[in-house]
Design a protein around this nucleic acid. Structure first.
Length: 723
DNA sequence: GTGGCAAAGTGTTATTTTCCCAAAT
DNA sequence: ATAACACTTTGCCAC
């Protein structure tokens, strides 16, 4: 259907044409009239078949007619960025686009001036908890990847946001985007939405299973591949690349990503030509970020990239991930070997997808088959629009039985239905508290009514839900998060802070008890690091066989624990050690152990380090807020510690690190050459400064600008007193 | 029989992942 | 459950 035949605002059509969109895909065509009428929608169609565009048009159309705001909710920060950038094209229509994710420079008041706001689900929840004053202005709510309602950790949040917005704003239009799921009908009934379901794809997908040298396709055809001494995976990759394609290989461990990349590297190296190689060699140099240390993962990655292949998993830093993804999109890298993260993230299509592992290790369960939904998401990455006529998704089987099973469950099978996880204890205590703390609900009937509107109630027996709610209310009451008077529930100061700090009530309780009851005589920075690492909000590292050294550390540090240490024979002892391991990592970080040192000592990637730092920093912040209430003698040590964790440095560098463009590395270099204070930097000549290791002329100038006499000294002087 | 080296066999180890705060610019 | 790696044993050849 050509764009010109669509009853749509001309201005919008013009924007679409600028985006080189001249006609709509069939599912888009089907959905559009309903969206334009302002109806609630559930779009259950494959990824990359243009779901977001329908949401964009829906939003823009509504806002141009009725004014107000729209909220676009996504599951990942990286996706928020992607959507934000796509939506920017609509700014010419006079709509302002905003993004709000944890690590971007946006605070709540600023969001008021935006018309379309992109954020993660937790951020949206957090905004609601802080009582934003523009809730009733939200006319359109888009939920991307709504099937994540099925997720134990994050699903309940999604459900709560939807239910709250529906309660606060009766006429809100909800546009839900979903992967194909079995019970999309049920979902659409809950949302009172029009359901559009389709398997249509812009590039057709052919699925197959490879057993030994034979591939059987979903249309019944078989082909045989054979080449001396090569595994079928290697032949598949080779053939695809030779035909001008690109390949994604999915495996189930990080270690495997590297070993498979290694096996493929010489093969791919042989295919690519000299020009391509020249381009590839440039890549590493162009992304070297002089603020960060070059770590061993960088080196490994660059060695592969040189040969046109890369590995990809959550242990990579965000820079490394971005480089791999972008170079693949630019078609410089021919093959990425990845863990399932890649399938859930930003859209990275390839001509051929190879799914080597359909099993995955799960704690307490051993190896289990991955959900069909996940298989479909991985397979769905096959087929690059504009480049490929057909996408190919091949799974690897080892036996005939496996082959048949893959066909039955994955290729011909239907994705699982999704189930609400709101009934879990942790979800209930978290969301009950926040609902009470924001006065969203007051009486027990309010609470029942509200939970009655959730997907959970839509799916399950409400009687048992009432029982679970009461149990959680009792827990919150007994631990002084909430009180109950004259039939009204209200939150205590402690409860309100817990809710607005966005931490698990169990974490809050742990922190509070430590502050009020700890017998630790003289808490050190380590004490507080260990405290926050013991909360359920900080996910601890795995223990391995060679980690016995941690037990010895426990002995050394025995006087610094704020919490009681469990008995060696007790069940909690393993948890304790794994929390301790995480604490020690952070302690090494603030004692300026190099990134590579940490990577080797703890067997983690730079991405893991970054994640742990973020979690610990966030909980230290929360601890400081509780310290204000319960023990302000800890304020100073906590403030200092938060900055040290942020930068990864010793106390003596706090002055220097407060300057922009100066991280732990440069600060250390300056300090070692005896520039220890802001005043030292003010006195030194520019030329001398630019001779310091890791500091060039540009940075030196930058420093001078910041410390120059006429400039404001507010920021830079804050840490002088730590000396 | 012995040294040198590659292939085959045995044993050990570890196992995927995301988001949440506030304040200032 | 299984891949990946480290380590040991076996097999083979030339001398």
């Amino acid at each position: 259907m050509k764009l010109d035949n669509i009853p749509l605002n001309n201005k919008i059509i013009k924007v679409l044409k600028n985006l080189e969109i001249f006609e709509l895909y069939p599912p888009q065509k089907e959905a559009l009239p309903h969206v334009l009428k302002g109806k609630n929608m559930v779009l259950a169609i494959p990824t990359a078949s243009g779901k977001s565009l329908i949401a964009y048009i829906g939003i823009v159309n509504k806002l141009l007619i009725a004014g107000g705001k729209a909220l676009y909710i996504v599951p990942l920060k990286a996706l928020a960025k992607e959507k934000y950038e796509e939506l920017k094209s609509f700014e010419v229509l006079g709509l302002k686009i905003g993004i709000s994710t944890g690590d971007l420079d946006d605070s709540d008041p600023r969001l008021f001036k935006y018309d379309i706001i992109v954020c993660t689900s937790e951020k949206a929840d957090s905004l609601l908890r802080h009582g934003i004053n523009w809730v009733e202005k939200v006319k359109v709510l888009v939920i991307d990847e709504i099937h994540l309602i099925n997720d134990y950790e994050r699903g309940p949040t999604l459900e709560i946001i939807i239910s709250k917005f529906k309660a606060l704003n009766e006429n809100i239009q909800i546009i839900a985007l979903s992967a194909t799921i079995k019970n999309s009908k049920e979902l659409s009934l809950w949302l009172k939405a029009k359901l559009i379901k389709s398997d249509w794809r812009p590039v057709p997908l052919r699925e197959g299973v490879c057993l030994k040298n034979k591939i059987t396709y979903d249309n019944g055809k078989t082909i045989t591949i054979n080449e001396n001494g090569k595994k079928s995976l290697e032949i598949l990759v080779k053939n695809s690349i030779k035909n001008n394609g690109q390949v994604l290989v999915f495996v189930n461990t990080r270690r495997s990503t590297m070993s498979v990349a290694n096996n493929l590297s010489s093969i791919i190296d042989n295919i690519i030509n000299k020009n391509e190689k020249r381009e590839l060699i440039k890549i590493p140099i162009s992304i070297k970020d002089s603020v960060n240390e070059i770590n061993s993962i960088d080196k490994k990655l660059f060695n592969f990239i040189k040969k046109g292949v890369a590995f990809h998993h959550a242990g990579l830093s965000s820079n490394q991930r971005k480089t791999v993804e972008q170079c693949f999109k630019k078609r410089q890298i021919k093959c990425i070997v990845a863990t399932p993260t890649l399938a859930a993230g930003v859209n990275i299509p390839a001509q051929c997808v190879i799914i080597r592992d359909l099993w995955r290790y799960e704690l307490n369960y051993g190896m289990r088959p991955i959900p069909v939904l996940e298989y479909k998401q991985q397979a769905g990455r096959a087929g690059r629009p504009k480049y490929d006529v057909k996408g190919e998704a091949i799974s690897i089987a080892k036996t005939t039985e496996q082959k048949d099973q893959i066909f039955d469950t994955y290729i011909l099978g239907e994705p699982e239905p999704i189930f609400s996880k709101l009934g879990s204890k942790s979800a209930l205590r978290m969301h009950l508290l926040s609902s009470i703390a924001t006065n969203f609900v007051k009486t027990i009937d309010d609470i029942y009514d509200f939970f009655d509107s959730t997907f959970y109630a839509h799916q399950s027996d409400t009687q048992s839900l009432k029982y679970d709610i009461n149990e959680s209310l009792n827990f919150l009451n007994q631990n002084e998060f909430i009180e109950f008077k004259d039939n009204i529930y209200f939150a205590t100061l402690f409860g309100k802070r817990t809710s607005s700090l966005y931490i698990d009530p169990l974490s809050a309780l742990l922190l509070k008890n430590a502050f009020e009851k700890s017998k630790c005589e003289k808490p050190t920075p380590f004490s507080f690091i260990n405290l926050v690492c013991s909360t359920p909000d900080v996910r601890s590292l795995y223990l391995r066989k060679q980690d016995f050294w941690i037990e010895e550390e426990a002995q050394q540090l025995k006087n610094e624990f704020l919490l009681k240490t469990p008995d060696i024979s007790s069940e909690e002892y393993e948890w304790f050690l794994s929390d301790l391991k995480t604490s020690l990592l952070i302690f090494d970080w603030i004692e300026e152990l190099t990134e590579d040192g940490i990577i080797a000592k703890y067997n983690v990637g730079p991405g893991d380090i970054h994640n742990i730092i973020e979690m610990v920093e966030w909980l230290l912040y929360a601890s400081r807020e509780f310290a204000r209430i319960y023990s302000d003698e800890y304020l100073k040590i906590l403030n200092e510690l938060i900055t040290r964790v942020h930068y990864g440095c010793k106390k003596e560098l706090l002055n220097l690190v407060s300057l922009k463009g100066i991280g732990r590395i440069r600060a250390r270099a300056l300090f070692n050459e005896n520039f220890k204070t802001i005043n030292d930097l003010r006195k030194v000549p520019l030329e001398r400064l630019s001779k310091v290791k890791t500091i060039g002329a540009g940075i030196a100038k930058n420093i001078k600008n910041q410390v120059g006499e006429n400039k404001k000294k507010k920021n830079t002087e804050i840490y002088e007193f730590f000396k």
